[in-house]
Write a protein that binds this DNA or RNA. Sequence first.
DNA 1: ATGGCTGACGCTGTCAGA
Length: 275
Amino acid sequence: MLVATWNVNSIRSRIDHVKEWLMTNNVDILCLQETKTEDQFFPVEVFSKLGYNICISGQKSYNGVAIISRFPINDIEIGFDQVIKESTNLSALSDQKRIISAEINELRIINVYVPNGSSINSDKFIYKQKWIECLKTHLQKIHLDHTSICLLGDFNIAPEDRDIHTPSKYIESIMASSTERELLKDALGGKLEDVFRIFEPGEQNWSWWDYRHSAWERDKGWRIDHIYLTEDVLRCANSCWIDKEPRSREKPSDHAPVVVDINWPPSDIENEFFF
DNA sequence: ATGGCTGACGCTGTCAGA
């Protein structure tokens, strides 16, 4: 089963890229971020004609997340619940559409678009921190020890220096600061593993290239799009890669999709190897 | 790179992203 995440920077502008990529790559579950449209304008029929189910949480102009799946989508949850928002005073801020989760094939898929935060000394960075704290509470409520989880999306954080093209230029700046790195690590609770790094420990692996400064042509990127798996799912993972091809196209998203190949649901034979 | 690109909104500029 192939599960992918892709910040498409407007689904209506990118629909042809997404459709072609889905058909070419045989992806089973695709999580989108920055769809940038209200649900009524989301091109649902493009995906239903290809045989996909879909759940969406969008808003006008900004943010927006969606899950596209060949398998039935159950138990859809949109946003953080009110209790979580109130616990961090996040309810006082506008309700940005940044998280959608669902049960697909006995796997809890959690699709997130973490706020960028703008700059370290901004109100938006405070919002980013609070948002990640909400994510932590959200994950804790799911009972990480008893649920098979795939948490994926645009995290707007480079977890380590090897995830930035020139880390020395971005010491303690947005997407690289120790504050946000530690908050994310804390939210993962030691239960969710960055599957890309299981298979690819090397440098020069980016998922985002700035539109400016010829970042793509000079391969100056960041790895800010991630897939995190609980241990039981990680055991079934075969490989994980960043597909740079869509970023090389005309009028691309500034992000590339990240894909994980999992033997899921696990077969009895595979379980016997471990016990 | 002094955000020097892009998309949305809606009108020729402004906001936001990362």
